[in-house]
Write a protein that binds this DNA or RNA. Sequence first.
DNA 1: ATGCATGAGCC
DNA 2: GCTCATGCATA
Length: 149
Amino acid sequence: MGCMSDVDADPRDLEAFAERFKQRRIKLGVTQADVGSALANLKIPGVGSLSQSTICRFESLTLSHNNMIALKPILQAWLEEAEKSHREKLAKPELFSGAEKKRKRTSIAAPEKRSLEAYFALQPRPSSEKIAAIAEKLDLKKNVYSAGI
DNA sequence: ATGCATGAGCC
DNA sequence: GCTCATGCATA
């Protein structure tokens, strides 16, 4: 009866894991479909993506026992990865939000551009107060000046 | 979330 | 042919 070398085959463990899995997935703001497709990024040999259906069935324990056993380590691996990178984002937002932080290329309309060039001809290196004043006059954000240098 | 269909592996 | 894992389509 008590055969099988599966250390992890206890239905109670599975139940507990499935529950934790779902809660933590939701806490990460990730859908079942997201999990399924993200599995492919784990690059576990012989493991591709799974469907939303399968993730759902895993969480609700409606897969066969063997199927659950087989899927558990995979989903566990995903969960650990997901939580790791989530922590990294919280710890070092500046490294990760590069795409979000980067200012878009500034484009300056022709009239403003001519004005700025005129100001620059008069005074190539104005103080930040001057810059602010110029920005005010031209109704531009003050950091636009440095974009024009 | 789930009924139904499909394809892979098995004997 | 049967079982099982999985996906699609849908309410």
